[in-house]
């Protein structure tokens, strides 16, 4: 195995926060993880398990209790402040609200480690800022005020700032937290693109497991009793994801790649049909707490034929034209 492209290595790390001057509250210990050049890593875990603390410890914003974090085989504590800022950039969960701050100026703040004492932007800095804005698709927004743009746009600008900072490693704490669904997908997809085209190592925490599964190269899964790392597909196939929400009614659906509520199915119902209409009719019936028995016509059943549905029981056969009507019909006939 080649080790040359291993950027980040975490060994026996214990994280937590200080309670007093000498004692720490330990959140998580025995963390052993790696990340390579060009990898997109998603950190998944329940609220409060220590995702933010882990990310902040890697980003050098928080001291760890024990163990070591190395970047390019050098301990992060051995880097100087400005060297480290040229190596790792960070986007936190806090939303930045500053009046009169232009998008361009915010992204230009990323040039902090590269400019002189007065922060004067040279030609190369302006080029870098414009390029960063172009990479996240925000070039036309340069002179807008950051309070005037949407949450999704602001998140893109924050990512552009890390690109302007020009670091090998980018760390983002829940970048999709305040976004609507299309923006969630777009932001994570953008991170994926940047990791591939710019060869950045990007580590982000998220609760949007289904999006992470589609885009991340690697998942760091923080469970109550340890961290597991692997490709999302491997974690699906070996049923690791089910362990995130132990003791809850959530179940990971291996085929669909998403969580489902565990349902207490009571009554049986027959279902005959095929294709997408069959699949969604089945989902609807399961939502109504039926156990679907495929092809069984000896009990009350539903015949699906394209977009017409027939409900058949001992007394009658009734045809309807939508699943909503079908559902009402079944409830009424009970």
């Amino acid at each position: 195995m080649k080790t040359s492209n291993k950027i980040l290595e975490i060994k026996n790390l214990e994280i937590g926060y200080p309670v007093s001057k000498k004692s720490f509250y330990s959140l998580f210990s025995d963390i052993n993880l790696t990340a390579k050049k060009g990898e997109l890593v998603a950190v998944i875990g329940k609220n409060g398990v220590g995702k933010s603390t882990l990310l902040r410890s890697i980003a050098g914003l928080q001291d760890s209790i024990h163990g070591q974090v190395t970047i390019n085989d050098i301990l992060i504590s051995d880097y100087s402040r400005s060297e480290f800022a040229g190596l790792v950039s960070f986007v936190s969960t806090e939303i930045v609200h500053v009046n009169n701050l232009r998008v361009f100026d915010l992204v230009a703040l990323g040039r902090f480690p590269h400019t002189n004492w007065f922060g004067k932007l040279e030609e190369k800095d302006i080029v870098a800022v414009n390029r960063a804005l172009e990479m996240v698709g925000m070039k036309g927004f340069a002179s807008k005020n950051i309070n005037e743009i949407s949450d999704g746009e602001r998140q893109r600008v924050m990512i552009a700032r890390t690109l302007a900072q020009d670091t090998q490693l980018i760390i983002l704490d829940e970048p999709t937290a305040f976004l609507d669904l299309p923006n969630k997908y777009e932001i994570v997809h953008l991170l994926n693109n940047l990791s591939k085209t710019e060869k950045k190592t990007i580590i982000f925490s998220t609760h949007d497991l289904n999006i992470a599964i589609q885009e991340a190269d690697k998942i760091w899964l923080m469970l109550n009793n340890g961290i597991i790392e692997g490709a999302p597909e491997d974690l699906i196939l070996n049923e690791t994801f089910n362990r995130i929400f132990d003791h809850t009614n959530l179940n990971f659906d291996k085929v669909k790649g998403d969580f489902r509520m565990k349902r207490k199915h009571s009554e049986k119902i027959g279902l005959i049909g095929e294709g997408i209409y069959y699949t969604w009719t089945k989902k609807a019936l399961e939502r109504m707490n039926f156990t679907v028995d495929k092809g069984n016509v000896s009990i009350p059943h539903v015949l699906v034929n394209q977009s017409t549905w027939q409900y058949v029981n001992e007394n009658s056969i009734i045809s309807v034209n939508s699943i909503y009507e079908l559902a009402n019909l079944i409830i009424e006939s009970k």
């Binding site: 980003a59 050098g60 914003l61 402040r81 400005s82 480290f84 800022a85 040229g86 790792v88 950039s89 960070f90 936190s92 806090e94 930045v96 703040l109 990323g110 902090f112 480690p113 900072q165």
Partner: peptide, 8 residues
């Protein structure tokens, strides 16, 4: 936090 992450 951001200031620190940019090397301030």
């Amino acid at each position: 936090n951001y200031a620190k992450s940019m090397g301030l």
